[in-house]
Amino acid sequence: MKTIFRNTFIIIFGSAVFYACGTEKPKSNPQPEPQPVQKVQTVASSGKYSKGDQVPNETVCMVNNAYMGKKQMEVPHNGKMYYGCCEMCVKRIPNDKSVREAVDPFNGKKVDKANAYIVMISDDGEVAYFENEENYKKFLAQNS
């Protein structure tokens, strides 16, 4: 019985020493590995809409402010509908007021993205939010 116990102890202890020696010790203050930035792929080149066009609200990721070319995930909040491209966006919209609002480039007023007139402002799908179509037309006239 003593022999079995001793042999078992030696095997377990030896395995533990081997394991400990074969693994790297953690650094005292390890720095987190930098995570790659995930670039949102837009499909502005789909041909359906181009720079200067109004785009349907449901085709815009309202967190990334990007035309995505297809209907996004619906995020209802306070009786309004917002849209996000991924689960992170869906979770962020109800909890972060800043992603539900934008500034109208014409008059500088805050605009609720759920009610905005959304226009694609770049060839890569970036969008701007206007209070209404009239503000967008005035903005165009002012910046021509």
Rank of each mutant, 00 (worst) to 15 (best):
I121G: 06
M68N: 12
A44C: 07
E87N: 11
T42Y: 07
N78L: 10
Q72K: 04
D96F: 02
E101A: 07
V40C: 12
E131R: 01
G125T: 12
I4C: 07
I121L: 10
P26M: 11
A16N: 06
E133H: 01
V119D: 00
N132Y: 12
C21I: 07
A116Y: 14
F139R: 01
K51H: 03
V63D: 06
T42L: 13
K39I: 15
P76G: 09
K97F: 04
N95M: 13
I121K: 15
N107H: 10
S98K: 03
V75C: 01
V99P: 02
G14T: 11
Y117K: 11
M68F: 08
M120G: 14
Q38A: 08
M1E: 06
P34E: 04
K91W: 04
Q41V: 14
E131G: 02
G69E: 08
E58A: 06
D96Y: 03
V127Q: 14
P34H: 00
S50A: 13
S45C: 05
C86Y: 05
K2I: 14
T59S: 05
C89F: 08
E101K: 13
K109N: 14
N65Y: 08
P34N: 00
E126K: 07
C85Q: 09
D124I: 15
K113D: 01
T8R: 05
G69S: 04
Y136V: 00
E87M: 06
M68A: 09
P34I: 00
K110M: 14
K39S: 04
V55D: 02
V63K: 04
A114M: 10
R100S: 04
G84W: 02
G47Y: 06
K70A: 13
S46N: 14
I121W: 00
F130K: 00
G22V: 04
Y129I: 15
A16F: 10
E58N: 15
A141I: 03
E87T: 11
R100K: 05
K97G: 03
I11N: 02
A128G: 13
K97Y: 03
F139C: 03
E74V: 10
P56V: 11
K80V: 07
E133I: 00
E133S: 12
S144Y: 13
V63R: 07
Y83D: 05
K97V: 13
F130Y: 15
Q72I: 02
F130W: 14
A16L: 10
T3I: 12
K2N: 11
V99N: 03
M81D: 07
N78C: 01
V60S: 08
N78S: 13
P32H: 08
D124N: 15
Q142H: 08
F18K: 12
N78E: 14
